[in-house]
């Protein structure tokens, strides 16, 4: 299902990142960086809450809005009960919506907020996402100090928080349309190869987006996937070529753009996490759209709906992907 919007604009964005993202090529686009993964707190979960608090303060400062002027705060993260978002957004806004779509939360938030604004229910909405490398490591993988060996296809959860303020007031970048994704299951079971798990989501959503809108892939200056990693992007490109005879030369991945994969060997195939796409889109691509270097960008944030418990019960890992089209005004 694709929704079209004509009065939803991105008014301002804010991004905060951790030490690994700071070493990456997009460093100068971030508003604030932390050198320490604890962010001055005693645990990584508390550090993630701090990241969310910081990014909200940063966004309000940049946009000039007051806490109580925000109509809706919408966001999510990877932790159980989305604690980073709920604790971090305490005291902000007149309504709260917690959403979970794993790493595709960033585009789902944009989509839902855009619907609320387009429908005239709210004037503005604060969308945010966060993730923390080590709190997700604890939740989904092994203890932090445990020396688990990783294959080349594994991805690295990005640390940081990203927020953007959507409103009905005209600005430089608008949300043009968005395609809601479906849960896909291609019977993938390898948690160390999330690109392969999530690529079916991108294939389905991108195909439906192009059909619904009647556009070619070349309509967009850039199509970015959320966190497929370098191997996942190749799968999507190859699949479109072989199945639909469509070439996607303008397809890139946020997880690859965020880091310098040649130098940062610990990243392996690329970045992941809800904030991975947010850090790239809300900072780097947003500024390119503002400067009119890009006219149209399609964000396909991907999420592996992964639960270690279900995997131990011999279930597959399903995935979802939501698409949001951004346009320079």
């Amino acid at each position: 299902m694709t929704y079209f919007f004509n009065q939803v604009y991105i008014e301002e964005t804010a991004t905060i990142c951790g030490p690994y993202e700071k070493k990456g090529p997009l460093r100068r686009y971030f508003d604030k960086t932390y050198d320490d993964l604890y962010c001055g707190k005693t645990s990584f979960e508390k550090a993630e809450i701090q990241l969310v608090k910081d990014v909200i303060v940063m966004l309000l400062k940049k946009s000039g809005y007051k806490k109580e002027e925000i109509d809706v705060v919408m966001g999510g993260d990877l932790s159980n009960q989305i604690t980073a978002t709920t604790y971090g957004s305490l005291g902000v806004g007149n309504g709260f919506v917690g959403i979970y779509a794993a790493c595709s939360t960033s585009s789902l938030g944009l989509l839902l907020s855009a619907c609320l604004i387009q429908g005239g229910f709210v004037q503005n909405s604060l969308c945010m996402v966060s993730s923390h490398n080590l709190s997700s490591e604890r939740q989904f993988r092994y203890p932090i100090e445990y020396g688990s060996l990783r294959p080349h296809t594994s991805t690295f959860t990005a640390t940081g928080a990203g927020a953007c303020l959507l409103s009905s007031e005209k600005s430089d970048v608008r949300i043009d349309c968005a395609t809601l994704g479906r849960v896909m299951d291609y019977e993938q079971t390898d948690p160390n190869d999330m690109g392969r798990v999530m690529a079916p989501g991108v294939i389905d959503t991108l195909k439906r987006h192009l059909e619904d809108t009647g556009r070619n892939a070349s309509y967009y200056d850039l199509i970015v996937t959320g966190d497929l990693g370098k191997y996942g992007v190749e799968i999507v490109r190859d699949y479109f070529q072989k199945e639909y005879q469509l070439s996607l030369p303008n397809l890139q991945d946020c997880g690859v753009l965020l880091y310098d994969l040649e130098k940062q060997k610990e990243i392996h195939a690329g970045g992941s996490g809800p904030v991975c796409s947010a850090l790239v889109v809300y900072s780097y691509l947003y500024s390119l759209l503002r400067e009119k270097k890009y006219k149209r960008v399609l964000l396909l944030a991907t999420g592996a709906l992964f639960s270690p418990m279900m995997l131990y019960q011999k279930q597959n890992i399903p995935c979802v992907c939501h698409a949001v089209s951004l346009e320079a005004v």
């Binding site: 291609y186 392969r196 690529a199 191997y231 190749e234 190859d238």
Partner: peptide, 13 residues
């Protein structure tokens, strides 16, 4: 799924 797995296998390092 087999078609997808076939393509995905080509890109496995």
């Amino acid at each position: 799924n087999t078609k997808y797995n076939h393509i995905a296998d080509l890109h496995k390092p």
